[in-house]
């Protein structure tokens, strides 16, 4: 068994209560390892902590207790700058909404991580990534001129062009119709493998069924884990 790309142990996350009372636990002790090449889906009812888990795993939000290791490095021990560099060089993120910089065109948004890492921009790779999500003709548009689903696809193109070691995607197909959604799933499936992992949060059980493994979250705990399940099995586990 190769070393996991991501290793989560005893992860908890609490948010301060709105009225100033006891902190509210959202994640209550999660253990999870993601080996290289795995396509992992996280499902669960709304409010069960899926997005929070993704933020903690990607270092966008600190864990309250427990450890998160990405490529062997414990996120809690990294400085802000080191954490940002680790994310920049190894992690791609597709949010539920808000992904793109409004001032930049679709093409510039896709090329942004390479520019930030001063890696030199491979224009053909950027164009290819945009073509793969079917947005080649929209490359010069700014986000405000793109539909929600198109913006989501630009964000996907960004991780395709970046080829990070880990891709986190929060509801990447949420704003897409069935056709575009299954196209994006194909792309994400293609990213996973070749040593890269994809961790996807989704409400769409058929999308989850495309994953190698499905983790069902409930009340901040891993309720079930299913390996290569069918959609019906996932539905049963979520019930």
């Amino acid at each position: 068994m190769p070393d996991p790309l991501i290793d989560v142990a005893g992860l908890t996350k609490c948010f301060p209560a709105a009225g100033g009372g006891d902190p509210v636990p959202v994640l209550r002790g999660i253990d999870l390892a993601v080996p290289p090449g795995e396509f992992l889906a996280v499902v669960g009812p709304s409010g069960s902590g899926k997005s929070t888990l993704l933020y903690c795993m990607s270092g966008l939000e600190p864990a309250t207790t427990g450890t998160v290791r990405v490529l062997g490095r414990s996120l809690g021990e990294l400085s802000r700058g080191a954490l940002a560099t680790l994310r920049r060089d190894h992690v791609g993120f597709v949010f539920q909404s808000y992904n793109l910089i409004p001032a930049l065109t679709a093409r510039e948004n896709v090329a942004l991580p390479a520019r930030l890492a001063r890696r030199g921009i491979d224009a053909s790779r950027v164009d290819h990534a945009l073509a793969e999500v079917g947005l080649r003709e929209r490359a010069g548009f700014r986000p405000a001129a793109l539909s929600g689903g198109q913006q989501q696809r630009v964000a996907i193109a960004r991780v395709l062009a970046l080829q990070p070691d880990v891709v986190f995607a929060d509801e990447p197909t949420g704003a897409l119709d069935t056709g575009a959604g299954s196209q994006v799933l194909d792309l994400l499936t293609g990213v996973a493998g070749a040593g890269r992992s994809v961790i996807m949060v989704t409400h769409d059980l058929r999308a989850a069924a495309r994953a190698d493994r499905v983790v069902v979250l409930r009340d901040g705990l891993v309720h079930r884990e299913l390996v290569r399940p069918r959609a019906e099995e996932i539905a049963e586990a979520v019930e």
Partner: peptide, 15 residues
């Protein structure tokens, strides 16, 4: 808000 988007896209605090 824009800076948070940049951070999410991989910009370091220094940038």
């Amino acid at each position: 808000h824009e800076h948070a988007l940049l951070a999410a896209a991989g910009a370091t605090p220094a940038v």
